[in-house]
């Protein structure tokens, strides 16, 4: 049985797709067969970030409608043969996504894959709700600003009440915080919230802090997930996130540019 991860936030532009691509690649690189699904019908860009946009033939909605098999639609990643992408449809209507259809696709993927990463669209509408409905784990992507934190809080309410696990009275979705686009300078100058500010409001398990980094843009322009850029801080931070998710203990870094300081601050913290 696959573990289903939803990458969600409420707010747009916070780094969900960047994160989905990075952690899916990270899990695959660790030897886990992983599928990543783009739920953003009409605004697909996961395929761009993974550099497979020119190999898209069928998409998620074709599979739901029975116009293609899953194996026809899945695209194998060019950098890692354990990673597969199921792209979103750029042309279809959002209403083509149905709970029943999504459930069937996930069930079928579950037989073959160890992890399924669902890249959620922004908002709290149907697409976002379907992306989280079947999840086991949620990566709540948040930027250090009040509107993003508030939207994440809203999303957490939906995660705890509108998922399949909630409806079936099962153990709740495991919720993790991923603080992205973290700019230490702007935090220090008070323009942005600090980790502590965010945690005071959300109090979640912190999976990692991804620093604001130019390498993210160049990676997405190149169509290579930033996690493969081992020299970039964002890439290293995503590598840590995957390791922590898989159970490794690693100190949090990149929160202030200086790792020593960091360790002093967070060394004792989970």
């Amino acid at each position: 049985m696959a573990r289903i991860i939803v990458v969600t936030s409420g707010k747009g532009g916070v780094g969900k797709t960047t994160t989905s691509a990075a952690i899916a690649m990270g899990l695959a690189k660790k030897g886990h067969k992983t599928a990543v699904i783009d739920f953003d019908v009409g605004l697909r860009n996961l395929d761009l970030i993974l550099g497979c946009e020119r190999r898209v033939v069928y998409d998620f909605i074709n599979v739901i409608n029975g116009e293609a098999s899953i194996n026809q639609a899945l695209i194998r990643d060019k950098n890692c043969n354990l990673l597969y992408i199921l792209p979103a449809s750029q042309t279809r209507d959002k209403d083509a996504l149905t709970q029943e259809g999504v459930g069937k696709v996930l069930e079928e993927l579950s037989k073959e894959f160890a992890y399924i990463v669902c890249d959620s669209p922004a908002g709290i509408e149907k697409g976002a709700n379907l992306a989280l409905y079947f999840a086991d784990d949620a990566f709540v992507v948040t930027n250090p600003e009040i509107s993003s934190v508030r939207d994440s809080d809203r999303m957490l309410g939906i995660l705890s009440s509108k998922s399949r696990r909630a409806e079936r009275n099962e153990e709740p979705i495991k919720e993790y915080l991923l603080l992205t686009r973290y700019d230490s300078d702007r935090v220090r100058s008070g323009e942005m919230l600090s980790l502590d500010d965010v945690q005071e409001i959300l109090s979640l398990d912190l999976l990692g802090i991804i620093p604001e980094s130019k390498s993210v843009l160049s990676a997405s322009n190149a169509g290579i997930p930033v996690i493969l850029d081992e020299k970039s801080e964002a890439g290293q931070a995503y590598t840590d996130v995957v390791a922590r998710y898989l159970g490794e203990k690693r100190p949090h870094r990149f929160i202030d540019g200086k790792q020593g300081f960091l360790r002093r601050l967070f060394g004792g913290r989970k």
Binding site: R154, L156, P172, S203
Partner: peptide, 8 residues
């Protein structure tokens, strides 16, 4: 015993 989130 669980948090009450925004919107709930």
């Amino acid at each position: 015993t669980h948090p009450i989130r925004s919107g709930q």
